[in-house]
Design a protein around this nucleic acid. Structure first.
Lengths: 135, 135
DNA sequence: TAATTAACCTATAGATTTAGTAGATTAAAT
DNA sequence: ATTTAATCTACTAAATCTATAGGTTAATTA
């Protein structure tokens, strides 16, 4: 299940991408336009800034802005920042790998290959989607 | 993220599918072979029985058994029983549809079409996989 | 320089879900 | 009648999610 955090984050990014100019947008503006709790959105946008997706500017006329053109903001990158691993189990995650406690032998696990297939099919979509595709 | 419930359920089903004969398998046998808490596994197998995937027999020589051949047990069906919706958001779920509170217009939602693509790619895999493919 | 604006930071809280435990009951076989 | 193994009910601990509250910092403007 996609978390609200990710959903709101994607909506906020799309909101910024839809603007013609690249001037900063205030949290309050996005929050009210997209029906998102402002405080919650604050922490989401902060995460995106700390991970190099957004830039910010304080004070009057300040806000958040995209650091790259929408077509250069990749969906798998954004999903990993907001949602975490693309894979459904950590033992097949490319970027967040972890062993499973219950599996003595990963390659003997009956779930393993199915999870790899699912991961790859999701990745093939997300790797080829950008923020520009959302608008 | 795949829940332990689903993971354990799939492992238990694969365990049963690997046997040559179709005689009942006891919870305790599966639990110890697959490193699963017995009590937890109990509730999982019960769910699978109530949803028509497994049959059961009480008393000595009892246990759980597959109601169909592994090649006829579909993965999207099992996933829906154990994990719930295939889709990452309820508003694009085929079997568990729900509106989103924050979306005035579903079709205007920037996340919507991406979620449909992801759902469809997962479904195309799961619809064509059976329990026989796990073993 | 003072006031205003808007991002930034820390802490916390309520709700929900997940994963698991405990203990009693029911049905089948011996 | 005893043993076996599924079934049922209830509960708990921990983690995660979705926020909320309140103060701090930095930039702009008057």
């Amino acid at each position: 299940m996609l978390s609200k955090k990710t959903k709101y984050g994607l909506k906020a990014l799309a909101f910024m991408a839809r603007k013609e100019d690249t001037s900063p947008v205030q949290i309050a503006t996005i929050a009210s336009s997209e029906n998102i709790s402002q405080k919650f959105l604050e922490s989401i946008l902060l995460t995106l800034r700390k991970n190099g997706v957004l830039g910010s500017k304080k004070g009057k006329g300040g806000g958040y802005y995209l650091l790259k053109a929408p077509k250069d903001i990749n969906m798998s990158e954004v999903m990993r920042i907001l949602e975490g691993p693309i894979a459904m189990v950590p033992c097949v995650s490319l970027n967040f790998y972890e062993r499973c406690d219950d599996c003595p032998d990963e390659n003997a696990c009956s779930v393993h290959s199915l999870m790899i297939e699912l991961r790859d099919s999701s990745l093939s979509i997300l790797n080829n989607k950008t923020l520009a595709d959302l608008i």
